[in-house]
Computed example of a mutant assay.
Amino acid sequence: MSPPDRKEIQVRRILDAPPPAVPPQLYADAVRRGGRLLRRRRWTRRLTWFLLTAALLAFVIWVSVAQPWVEPPSETTPPLTGW
């Protein structure tokens, strides 16, 4: 037999065997862990939305106060000519 044939026989033997027994507490642990992951995702999503909203509000307030689109006043006076 060549090595691939031996490997195939081993795989078939594993697949033909009955599945291993699952520990009885595994389902409860999976449900508890899944619930914890869902709560953490929900909390992270809410925190992200809150931070995004706060950043947008801060930006809107800054824009309304600073008015960056308005040209700043000139700091020097033009020379007086023609007097």
Rank of each mutant, 00 (worst) to 15 (best):
M1G: 14
S2G: 11
S2Y: 00
S2L: 09
S2R: 01
P3G: 10
P3W: 05
P4A: 06
D5Y: 01
R6H: 10
R6Q: 15
K7V: 06
I9W: 02
I9V: 10
I9K: 11
Q10E: 15
V11Y: 05
V11E: 15
V11H: 09
V11L: 15
R12W: 00
I14F: 11
I14E: 13
L15A: 08
L15T: 01
D16W: 04
D16P: 04
D16Q: 14
P18W: 03
P20A: 15
V22P: 01
P24V: 03
Q25F: 08
Q25C: 10
L26S: 07
L26K: 06
Y27M: 13
A28N: 02
D29H: 04
V31H: 00
V31L: 09
V31I: 09
V31C: 06
R32T: 03
R33S: 15
R33L: 15
R33I: 14
G34A: 10
G34V: 03
G35K: 10
G35W: 05
G35C: 12
R36L: 09
R36N: 06
L37R: 11
L38I: 14
L38E: 15
L38G: 14
R39I: 06
R39S: 11
R39A: 12
R41W: 00
R42W: 07
R42N: 09
W43D: 08
W43F: 07
T44N: 12
R45K: 11
R45W: 11
R45S: 13
R45G: 12
R46Q: 06
L47D: 07
W49H: 07
W49G: 06
W49F: 07
F50I: 13
A54M: 09
A55H: 02
L56A: 08
L56E: 02
L56W: 03
L57M: 12
L57R: 00
A58C: 07
F59D: 12
F59N: 14
F59Q: 12
V60L: 11
V60H: 03
I61F: 01
W62E: 10
W62K: 04
V63M: 13
V63C: 10
S64F: 06
S64T: 10
V65L: 14
V65W: 08
A66D: 06
Q67K: 12
W69T: 00
W69L: 05
E71M: 10
P72C: 11
P72F: 02
P72G: 14
P73L: 08
P73A: 09
S74T: 08
T76Y: 05
T76F: 05
P78A: 13
P78T: 07
P79D: 07
L80A: 03
T81L: 13
